[in-house]
Design a protein around this nucleic acid. Structure first.
Lengths: 152, 152
DNA sequence: GTACACCCCGTACCAGGGTACGGGGTCAAG
DNA sequence: CTTGACCCCGTACCCTGGTACGGGGTGTAC
């Protein structure tokens, strides 16, 4: 098992030293062994955890969830059903985001299609739609404001 | 033209007083007239701007972009092409987000499909995929890591 | 033996979109 | 005239995922 300093592990991984320390503070990465001088000493397992984190991030998990997943990985009493539960919840979450984004895209597409001319911006159908006291945008009800950020 | 206090305008709109003041600080909402006491006095135009902001938010614009759109609305030299440009850029943006989310959803869907049993979490195909030193998740290349912060 | 790169730590800062707090003034009813 | 709800202001804080800074110790090659 080779030993790496924080800088080596970071460079191997394409992240900054500060990021590794940050993950450590967040409890994602275990505190590594230290040399007499206080230098961190990482093994291959730390690299594996970093890879796990990167992939889980690519799948849309937050660092908090990733911490949970890393815990499951080591917890002998955790079941595969636990993992599937988290993955399914994430899928539901992603689907909702996709629906929201599709609504936005469609509304914007309709609006840009409605705005041809080269006249002054005032009077442009896009801005008019945003101004309209009638509660619709793009000719279609946007529904309740579901895309709230209040729903991590 | 009725005159509203900040609290009235906020309640009518379903946002907090602090939010209205926040939009003002951000330059989205013009500074309103004041009573002798210093109380803000809003007219219907402020309500219209708030509505504009809410709708533009629903379409995925950031407050910064919304500020720009509000500016175009009043700028006599702005053209409809300017507005369309921003809308189109937003559409491109949204499409990219949708693609990313679809990739995530598909990868997660494949992984959950691969994880049947009720055994211990260790050995679960989902966690295994995240652990695998081979650089793939869900049986498909996730492509270059585009969300790198190490670029600028 | 001295450069120079690297590491330590704590703390502050970035964006985005607000929310909360605290000490004080104001407005309308009773 | 007092009570309670409202408003003023500035500032600090929330979350997420880091990035940057500064003052100091260390590791190693020349």
């Amino acid at each position: 098992m080779r030993a790496f300093t924080v800088g080596q592990v970071a460079r191997r991984f394409g992240v900054g030293v500060e990021t590794v320390r940050f993950y450590e503070r967040q409890g994602l990465l275990e505190e590594p062994a230290r040399r007499a001088s206080g230098y961190r000493e990482y093994g291959d397992d730390a690299v594996a955890v970093l890879r796990f984190i990167r992939r889980a991030k690519q799948l849309g998990f937050t660092l908090k969830k990733i911490k949970g997943l890393l815990g499951l990985r080591l917890d002998a009493s955790a079941t595969r059903a636990d993992v599937r539960t988290q993955a399914s919840a994430k899928i539901v979450d992603i689907k909702a985001k996709i629906r929201d984004l599709r609504r936005m895209r469609d509304a914007l597409t309709r609006l840009t299609a409605a705005c041809h001319g080269d006249g002054p911006a005032s009077g442009c159908p896009i801005l008019e739609a945003l101004n309209d006291p009638d509660d619709r945008v793009g000719g279609e009800d946007l529904g309740p404001v579901r895309s709230r950020r209040t729903e991590p």
